[in-house]
Amino acid sequence: MSNLDNINPPVIINEPGTLHPINQTKDYLLKLLSEMGFTEVYGPEIETEEFNFDMLNIKKSHPARQMHDTFYAESKKNVLRTHTSPVQIRSMLKSKPPIAFTSAGKVYRKDDDATHLPMFHQVEGIYVDENITFANLKDLIHKILYELFGNDVEIRFRPSYFPFTEPSAEVDILSDSGKWLEILGCGIVNPIVLDNCSIDSNKYSGLAFGLGVERIAMLKYGVNDIREFYKSNLDFLTQFK
């Protein structure tokens, strides 16, 4: 027997590919929320103004409805959804409380600069039941952020404004550099929205929150430029194994 027979070739390792880091982050958030009791619901990216704005108490005069902020389609018959909240509206119309939904996916705004893209991803949650309070919302948001950033993370709630929640809040976490970073928006569902969905706002109340998936992915992976996610560069994508 030749001594060549004892020579084995190099081991072949078939490198796996990767799921996109934004989808990985989105799925991670959805799994986290499902473990907290939220069920995922689905809806279209091309919406009507009624579901994207009117049902959410976003008045005709609201700046977000202007042509420079929202993409309109088919001679203003439709809009590209500006958030995933219309999915929750559609689901609330078909359900009775108590309900706990998450909706996730692509949303569109007419932005394109170093920090904003015309398309990005959101994960939103809504919980409607009797006696839901702002104190409940705070507890839930703390739990989500502890899961995401560890139990030592410092969290700050500050008042904000969204037409579909009242009271509304934006939530920041304290970064290692001592700077507060905005992480999510949330609030108590505006009773007008519940009434729009035929849910008795005298009996029920709700909490809602929304996270920007790119924002979370950037923080968790240390990506500084949001545009990297959408260049489809294999040198970038294959890192997220």
Binding site: P16, T18, N23, A73, S75, Y230, S232, L237
Partner: peptide, 24 residues
Amino acid sequence: NGFSEVINFPFTSKNDKRSISIDN
């Protein structure tokens, strides 16, 4: 099998009679 996932913006110049047009 070694494939990497990409996510693309949906806007294009290509169109046919089924295409949804963006007003702005």
